[in-house]
């Protein structure tokens, strides 16, 4: 008679502790409020920038061919959009960047895992890979042109040289930051080497890996622009870089600024639409809400 009662008491104490000790869950603010908080400040900043630009242009400190008015840049962008040129140019560049980036992910992921887990490999090429990150990928363009000619191969080569080190290094950093207890738990639960990589190592390293992917995307995009600006040939078609190059050749500052604007737009757009939400979802699931 006494034992079940005691057991029930204990269950009640346990349930009370669970209720008291479990951390409170923060309520997510409503969609409208989140929009106000995240979208309005950058819009205001952008408007201010436009205002300053307009004022500087109106004050006519610099000649028109150096500082165009916002409206003439807008006209250049609008014209490119209307004639369909903008879409062609964007498509050429973005699909190259995405293809190059995906290839880089396929190469860098096993490479990063090898460097992180095999001591000899790390000793042999670990520092080389970090060093490659500080080498501007433009430096590969002349070599690429000599090796592959002014062909898409050169472009992809430069993109890969730019993004593979970032992605691999991100993965290595992610693996290095895994608490040592987790792989041990995996071993104790019966995970072999491959299963441990798939079920413990990769998911545990995901935040670092994602940071590497984000940086890798930025590097592939800017490597691509560098390659497109320098290597121009009819074979390559017209990407954003060539568009910028043409603007420069025509001494058309509005077109140059319009090109820069479009390059930025793609970079910011991919970051906001793809990487930011992905990173947030991953960090939020792990209770790492500090940076959000």
């Amino acid at each position: 008679m006494a034992t079940p009662r005691l057991d029930n008491d204990l269950a009640a104490v346990g349930a009370g502790l669970d209720a008291l000790d479990a951390p409170n869950q923060e309520q997510r603010p409503s969609l409208g409020r989140r929009f106000l908080r995240t979208a309005v400040p950058p819009l205001i900043a952008f408007a201010l920038l436009l205002g300053v630009w307009q004022a500087l242009w109106a004050a006519a400190f610099w000649p028109e061919y150096q500082l165009p008015s916002p409206s003439s840049v807008w006209a250049a962008v609008a014209e490119a959009i209307e004639t369909g040129r903008a879409l062609d140019v964007l498509w050429t560049s973005v699909h190259r960047a995405v293809l190059g980036f995906l290839t880089a992910v396929l190469i860098a992921t096993p490479l990063g895992l090898l460097i992180a887990k095999v001591r000899v490999v790390r000793a042999a090429i670990g520092s080389l890979l970090s060093g490659l990150q500080s080498l501007p990928s433009v430096a590969w363009v002349p070599a690429g042109i000599l090796w592959f000619g002014a062909t898409p191969s050169t472009i992809y080569f430069v993109v890969l040289m730019g993004s593979v080190p970032s992605i691999a290094n991100g993965l290595v950093a992610g693996v290095d930051q895994i608490p040592p207890l987790l792989p041990r738990v995996g071993q104790a639960l019966g995970a072999g080497r491959l299963a441990a990589a798939r079920h413990i190592l990769l998911p545990a390293a995901l935040p670092g890996y994602l940071a590497g992917l984000k940086q890798g995307w930025a590097f592939s995009w800017r490597s691509l622009m560098a390659a497109e600006i320098i290597a121009t040939s009819p074979q390559l078609g017209e990407g954003l870089g060539q568009y910028l190059h043409n603007g420069s050749s025509l001494n058309d500052i509005s077109m140059v600024i319009a090109a820069i604007f479009l390059i930025l737009l793609v970079g910011v757009g991919i970051e906001l639409l793809l990487f930011r939400p992905l990173e947030r979802a991953v960090l939020r699931a792990r209770g790492l809400t500090g940076a959000l």
Binding site: A11, G14, A15, L17, D18, L20, D21, A22, P23, Q25, A285, R286, G287
Partner: peptide, 18 residues
């Protein structure tokens, strides 16, 4: 272990004892 209701929670949403 009397946690049938907490299966959908993530570790950071649980107390140390849980």
């Amino acid at each position: 272990v009397r946690l049938a209701e907490a299966g959908h929670k993530r570790p950071h949403e649980l107390s140390g004892g849980m």
